[in-house]
Structure formats: structure tokens, C-alpha cells
Design a protein around this nucleic acid. Structure first.
Lengths: 131, 131
DNA sequence: CAGGATCCAATCGGATACTG
DNA sequence: CAGTATCCGATTGGATCCTG
């Protein structure tokens, strides 16, 4: 499966705003992109794409996440307006997390990407050393 | 399988393979996902989605990338079969990078995500402290 | 031009302990 | 249950120098 360097048939035009192909360093888009594509950000957004969930359920689903990183990631996503946090003043505490409108908009784009990775992973990573 | 809070209208079903919503730790999909969503991986795949490019052009486009990280990321993506490397034995050296079939398949899913981030970034990140 | 090798500062992030 | 706080080892990644 070789693709010639000279203008492949698959070459895709980027959206107008990115037409120059340069993603400026230090601009807001970089920051947002880093939040979204962060190790745990992806998994949390993915988990929440199925509906609101509690802290403990998120810990289960994003398997391997530490409490520290779960809290940190959720806070970041909340500040970005992608995740909504609803705490109920009961004992024991109950807190539900869910995607905002904007979060669902994003997850609609994120889910296919993750699904693709899931489907192609075995084929690709097989027999490579861990890095 | 219980989805806790009141099932929002936007709730999305994950693909069958991910139906349980759990992305196992240490499985190949995690590794591949990390490669794809890595800070520089995203930008390099994005740049290459417009067609094959040379080392120096990639350095320009993925603004801020160090030589070390560019080399490292390209190697990883090449091993994953997403990027193809073609070196010409001339002096000075000329090396062209391009997406493989599989790489284009992926970029088709990645580009909309990045575009979304680009469009929403100013609105979202404005006035937040850097993290 | 296209990298490889090395050093080291900064950040990440897990483990653990503690709390309302 | 749903976090916060702290310690500190592991990893990241930039800067710099070197080479075919």
C-alpha cells in the first residue's frame, strides 16, 4: 500500500481556517486539543458519551485512571464547558457527571476515531515492543 | 448494564465492540490511541493529510516541535503503518513522508475533530489560565 | 538537509494518607 | 462516596552538539 509523494488521490483539503496547514503554537486551539486528546480525557469523554455517570463508574470505565488524574481531567473538561458536574448534598455524597451540549458535539467526532483505533489496534500493534 | 442518570437525548451508543464502555488498560487499542492522540502525532497526521511532505516542511507546520520529538513521533507512526517514509540517497539528503492508506483512513476521522477544536477554541479557552 | 546522541529540567502521574 | 493533599519516582521533551 504505497502512496506517491506527488499529490495522492487521497489528499484531503483542510478546512479553510486551517488552509495554510499550520497550527500556531501557543494558540487556544492547541490548548483545547491537548485537553481533548489527553490520555484520560479521551477515555472519559468516551465513557460519558453513553450518558451521565458517577465518579465511581467513571473510575471503573477509564480503567487504570488514578483518583488524582480523574479529578484533574474532569476539572479541566468542566472548565472547557464539555462536562457538567452535579453534586447532591446528601450523605454519602452523590455526584453525577455528564456531557454538555458542546461535549456531545465533540463526542460525536471522537467516538468514530476511538472505534477505528479499537478495530485496527490488534492488527497494528501486534508484535511491537511497548513504547 | 446500567446507565445511571436520566438518559439524555444526545446519548450515543458506542460500537458493539465497546458496548461495555470499558477500554481495557494495557490493551493494544490504548497504545494505538496514545500514539494517534499524542501532542505531536495529531499535528503531524493533520499536516500529512494534505499530501506528502519533507522533514523540514513538517517541522514548519507542526510549529514548535523539536527535532527529537518529530523524529520520535514519525518513527512511531511509521511503525504503526500510518506513515510512509521515502529516503532518496542524494546529497543533500531528501526524505519524504506521506500517509499510508491506513493513515488516510485515520486522518479522515481526525481532521473533523481538529477542525472542531479549532473553531471552538477561542470561545472555550478565552480567559482561562494556562494549564 | 535530515537526522542521532546526550544532558537535564520540568512535568506527569501513581501511591498513599486523610477528610466531609 | 467523592474527593483533597503530599510525596516522589518515572517519563517527557527541549536545548545543544554532532554527523553522513
Amino acid at each position: 500500500m504505497e502512496v506517491s509523494t506527488a499529490d495522492p488521490a487521497h489528499a484531503m483539503r483542510l478546512p479553510a481556517a486551517l488552509a495554510d496547514g499550520v497550527f500556531p503554537a501557543g494558540c487556544p486551539s492547541r490548548t483545547l486539543l491537548d485537553h481533548i486528546t489527553s490520555k484520560w480525557g479521551v477515555l472519559i469523554l468516551l465513557a460519558l458519551s453513553e450518558g451521565g455517570q458517577r465518579w465511581s463508574e467513571l473510575r471503573r470505565r477509564a480503567e487504570g485512571v488514578s483518583e488524582k488524574m480523574l479529578a484533574q481531567t474532569l476539572k479541566t473538561l468542566e472548565r472547557d464547558g464539555l462536562v457538567s458536574r452535579k453534586a447532591q448534598p446528601v450523605i454519602p455524597p452523590r455526584v453525577d457527571y455528564s456531557l454538555t451540549e458542546r461535549g456531545y458535539e465533540l463526542s460525536a467526532l471522537l467516538v468514530p476515531l476511538v472505534a477505528w483505533a479499537f478495530e485496527n489496534a490488534d492488527d497494528i500493534i501486534n508484535g511491537q515492543r511497548t513504547d
